[in-house]
């Protein structure tokens, strides 16, 4: 394989004095689905935010096709082709489904392309087409996740960062969402970096995976290797009951900077 599409080196990010990611390095090659697994508080969301420009790193680089993009606003990163589908969906609740999608394309100016991409999103998520004029806040949790992914696609990203797409969804719906993620990767050639706690489903979909603990990458390898690994089986594949999911519902909405 040649140069990775996304290359992260020695990234460090802080919340005030708290060091949330401690020298993370990873690579995502064009056309791949790469997953980052880790327990609550491992620093997965912080990593995503630092890649997408929502947070500035203290040290380290984020390179997209060799060009450094870290430490700028998401405005810049999105234009360069990195879009983050945030944890907890974060749709615009009082705007229609279609207007939500249009906001995903905020950085674009090609009207025809935007219209075509709205149709493309509706093909992958027919329910969104049915609800296109409805306020997004009235959608179910699963539909909101679909909208969040669709809205991310509207930026025509080169790399899409998905932060826990399975959060709060039923096992069936989680499967459905991951099936669509795989199709988008295969058919629309969207490269994906997916953060998950649901290791089983993430490793089934991904080509490559990393494991993150306490702000560090502690393991990395092709997905099938990780699936076979003893540690992963013990720590992640064994313990993903509903209790762990359920606890997370109360999580505060995060403030930014």
């Amino acid at each position: 394989m040649g140069e990775p599409l996304l290359k992260i080196e020695n990234l460090e990010s802080y919340y005030g004095p708290i060091m949330a990611i401690r020298g993370v390095s990873l690579e995502v090659h064009e056309g791949q689905i790469v997953t980052v697994l880790g327990a609550n508080g491992a620093g997965k969301t912080t990593l995503m935010k630092t890649i997408s420009g929502v947070m500035d790193p203290e040290k380290g680089t984020v390179k997209l096709s060799g060009e450094e993009i870290q430490g700028r606003d998401p405005d810049h990163s999105v234009r360069k082709g990195v879009v983050q589908v945030p944890e907890g969906r974060e749709i615009f609740p009082l705007m229609s489904v279609e207007d939500n999608l249009k906001m995903g394309a905020f950085t674009r100016t090609d009207r025809a392309g935007i219209a075509a991409d709205i149709d493309m999103v509706y093909r992958y998520f027919p329910i969104l087409k049915e609800r296109s004029t409805q306020d997004a806040g009235t959608l179910s949790g699963g539909q909101q996740q679909m909208l969040a992914i669709g809205r991310g696609l509207m930026a025509r990203p080169r790399v899409m960062l998905l932060d826990e797409p399975s959060l709060g969804l039923s096992p069936l719906l989680t499967k459905e969402i991951f099936a669509i993620i795989k199709r988008l990767n295969a058919e629309q050639k969207v490269t994906m970096l997916v953060v998950e706690q649901n290791a089983k489903i993430a490793l089934e979909a991904a080509h490559y995976g990393y494991v993150m603990e306490l702000g560090r990458i502690v393991m990395g390898g092709p997905a099938e290797k990780l699936r076979a690994s003893k540690d992963i089986q013990e720590f992640y594949l064994g313990q993903q009951g509903e209790s762990q999911r359920g606890q997370r519902r109360w999580k505060n909405r995060k403030t930014w900077r």
């Binding site: 929502v54 879009v83 705007m95 207007d99 905020f106 930014w256």
Partner: peptide
């Protein structure tokens, strides 16, 4: 577009920021 972006930023500032809305 800018009017919609104003609505978006008022409803969910964080998400607007994620979408590249300045």
């Amino acid at each position: 577009k800018i009017g919609l972006a104003m609505q978006a930023a008022s409803q969910n500032q964080l998400a607007a920021y994620y979408m590249g809305i300045p």
